[in-house]
C-alpha cells in the first residue's frame, strides 16, 4: 500500500474534547498503524464515538492534535484515503444499490469497480434493488460497500454488523481481515466481544474518556486471573464449591460451570470426587470477563 511504514495512519496527541463543560475525551494519545485491526471497546458514553469522531475529522478536538496521514483530517487528500461506516446512516432512497455505491466510489480517484464492490459486500444479487426496499442488515452491507469503495488506507467501522445473521457477519469479518492484510489500518468500534475477539490485533479499552487498556486480545484476557470449567456432573453445588480454587459455581440441571483461579488444582480434586467424569471443557476467561474486570477496576481507582 501507499502509506510509508514509518508514519502511523492516524495519530492523536493529548486530545481532549468537552461538550458544554463536560470532558468526554481526557488527553488521549494514540497511533494507528497500517495493517492492524484495532477494536475500540468500552461502555456506552465512555467516549468511543467521540474518539472515532475526532480521528475522522468529524469533530474538532477541544485541545491537542489530530493527524490523518500527517494531515488535517478535514483535508480532502486525507479523506480520499479513508472509508467510514457510521453507526447510523441512511441511504439515498431514490437510488438503487449499485447507483448509491457508484456515486460514493466516484468521489475517489483510486476506487474499486462497482461490480467488485458489490461482490465483496455480497450485494451482487441486490444491485438493482432501490435502497428504500432493503432490510436493516442489507442496508448495513451497502454502507460497508460505500466504506470500502475508495480502497481506503484507513477503514473506520462503527458497529458494522448490527442486524446481521451469522453468515453475513462472517463474510464481513473475512472481508475486513483481507483489507487489513492489504495494509489498511482498521478501527472497529463494537459491542460484540466475539467480533473484537475474532478480528482485532489490538484492543483499546476506553472508560470515562481515557484509554484504560491497550494490548493484544490475548494479553487483555490474561489480565483476568482464572478460567471456567464446564462439565456435566450429578454432584451438588455445595460440594463443588468446596473444591480447591473454586470461586463460583453455576448449575443449570446437570450442566455446571466452575470459575476457578487454578484449573489444574480444581480438576485434580474433581476427578477424585467424581471418577465417572469424562466430558468437560476448560476455557480461558472471555474477553467480556476481561473487559468487565478492567472497567470495574478502573472505576474503583477513580473513586
Amino acid at each position: 500500500m501507499s502509506s510509508s511504514s514509518s508514519s502511523p495512519v492516524a495519530r492523536l496527541t493529548r486530545a481532549t474534547k468537552s461538550y458544554a463543560g463536560k470532558q468526554v475525551l481526557n488527553g488521549v494519545n494514540l497511533a494507528l498503524e497500517p495493517g492492524v485491526v484495532t477494536a475500540l471497546l468500552g461502555p456506552n458514553g465512555a467516549g468511543k464515538s467521540t474518539l472515532a469522531g475526532v480521528l475522522t475529522g468529524r469533530l474538532e478536538p477541544s485541545s491537542g492534535e489530530v493527524a490523518l496521514f500527517d494531515r488535517d483530517p478535514r483535508d480532502p487528500e486525507a479523506r480520499a484515503r479513508m472509508g467510514v461506516m457510521l453507526q447510523a446512516a441512511g441511504l439515498p432512497d431514490g437510488l438503487t444499490v449499485s447507483e448509491a455505491i457508484n456515486l460514493q466510489a466516484g468521489y475517489f480517484k483510486r476506487r474499486l469497480k462497482t461490480t467488485d464492490i458489490l461482490e465483496q459486500a455480497g450485494l451482487t444479487a441486490l444491485a438493482k434493488r432501490p435502497c428504500a426496499r432493503l432490510s436493516g442488515g442489507e442496508q448495513r452491507r451497502v454502507q460497508f460497500a460505500c466504506a470500502i469503495a475508495g480502497c481506503p488506507d484507513f477503514l473506520v467501522l462503527d458497529e458494522p454488523t448490527t442486524g446481521f445473521d451469522a453468515d453475513a457477519r462472517h463474510a464481513l469479518w473475512s472481508n475486513v481481515r483481507a483489507k487489513a492484510a492489504e495494509g489498511a489500518a482498521v478501527l472497529l468500534a463494537t459491542h460484540y466481544m466475539e467480533e473484537a475477539d475474532a478480528l482485532a490485533d489490538r484492543i483499546i479499552v476506553i472508560a470515562d474518556g481515557r484509554i484504560v487498556a491497550d494490548d493484544t486480545p490475548a494479553a487483555i484476557k490474561a489480565k483476568v486471573a482464572g478460567s471456567t470449567i464446564r462439565l456435566r456432573t450429578a454432584q451438588t453445588a455445595l460440594l463443588l464449591a468446596r473444591l480447591p480454587a473454586v470461586a463460583k459455581v453455576e448449575k443449570k440441571g446437570a450442566d455446571t460451570s466452575l470459575v476457578t483461579t487454578n484449573a489444574r488444582a480444581t480438576l485434580t480434586a474433581l476427578f477424585q470426587m467424581d471418577p465417572t467424569l469424562t466430558h468437560f471443557d476448560v476455557m480461558a476467561a472471555s474477553l467480556e470477563d476481561a473487559l468487565a474486570d478492567i472497567i470495574t477496576n478502573f472505576d474503583k481507582e477513580a473513586l
Partner: peptide, 18 residues
C-alpha cells in the same frame, strides 16, 4: 432535513467530495 437526520450528509462530509 431528511438527509441530515439520516446521516447521509455526515457521510458526504467525511468523503473527499468537494
Amino acid at each position: 432535513a431528511a438527509e441530515r437526520e439520516s446521516g447521509q450528509l455526515e457521510l458526504k462530509r467525511l468523503s473527499p467530495m468537494p
